[in-house]
């Protein structure tokens, strides 16, 4: 099987939206440091791809690259894909239960608490505010609103707790939606060095679509490529919270060399993995 290498695009979403650029607000990583990648943890990553052969002279298989975007202030990608939907749905169910309980308390006039409408309204407001706030995604071209994923999602913070909105003019501290890569282009693609495409992942734990490419490792050199990245900005208009897509771009590089491929565990070519002595 081809060696799979990961390139991580970490975006400080809040800062990028504020500055309206990814410049200075991205951190790129890959797992090819052992092969000689440079600039890990910076905005200028040069991924090393050692192409031609293993140490024993055998021909190396083609290289596969996978790109994964993450947000610095976003929920971890290791959470189940359904986390946002489940949490939103559960909070609705809890709210219904709270309303039922309130109806019973009003009926029995618990502690003589509900003597007028104002006291009931106060309780209703308390329950409503704990139900969280829904936000829809606005489509890029026609401004149409639709649900994120298959159901309406509520706005959460980084710990997955629903947030309450104190003032509609003030954007609360939120979990930024994880950015997505919408395209890979540029020199490396134009010169047919990499052949990128978006794939659907069968892995339900990750977020489905991801960009991947096979690399023509027989043409050594350093090549630039451009990532089209979509971030989401939370805003409020016409009485509705909405995630507005914001398109940005950033660049990175691959450097293909004739150096030998290395195995991260053995630090060399094909060979025995270091088995523990029992």
């Amino acid at each position: 099987m081809s060696q799979q290498l990961a390139i991580i695009l970490m975006v400080d979403v809040e800062a990028a939206l504020k500055d309206n650029t990814l410049e200075g607000n991205t951190y790129l990583f890959d797992n090819m440091k052992l092969q000689g990648s440079e600039g890990l943890g910076t905005g200028k990553l040069i991924s090393a791809i050692n192409g031609i052969s293993y140490y024993d002279g055998s021909q190396a298989d083609k290289q596969i690259l996978n790109w994964l975007p993450y947000g610095v202030g976003s929920l971890p990608p290791t959470l189940p894909k359904s986390f946002l939907a489940d949490k939103s749905k559960n909070s609705d169910l809890n709210t219904i239960e709270d309303f039922k309980a309130l109806a019973e308390r009003i009926e029995t006039n618990e502690n003589s608490q509900f003597t007028d409408i104002a006291s009931v309204v106060e309780e209703l407001k308390k329950i409503s505010s704990s139900a969280g706030v829904k936000a829809k995604v606005q489509s890029k071209f026609q401004g149409i609103l639709h649900d994120l994923g298959i159901s309406e999602h509520k706005i959460m913070d980084i710990t997955g707790e629903l947030i309450t909105i104190e003032s509609e003019g003030k954007i609360p501290e939120i979990n930024s939606l994880t950015p997505i890569i919408t395209g890979i282009s540029g020199e490396a693609v134009d010169k047919n060095i990499i052949y990128p495409a978006a794939y659907g992942s069968p892995d339900m734990v990750t977020d489905g679509w991801y960009w991947s490419a096979s690399v023509d490792t027989y043409r050594p050199g350093t090549y630039a490529y451009t990532m089209d990245v979509q971030l989401y900005k939370l805003s409020h208009s016409d009485g509705q919270w909405r995630w507005i897509p914001v398109h940005m771009r950033c660049e990175a590089y691959i450097r293909i060399t004739n150096d030998f491929k290395k195995n991260g565990f053995t630090n060399a070519g094909v060979g025995s993995l270091p088995l523990p002595i029992i």
Partner: peptide, 21 residues
Amino acid sequence: VGALATDSLSGQVYFMDTNKA
């Protein structure tokens, strides 16, 4: 892989926060 192979996090871990501004 780097951390497990070398039994160390030296050079294998990167930290970021959201308070650069």
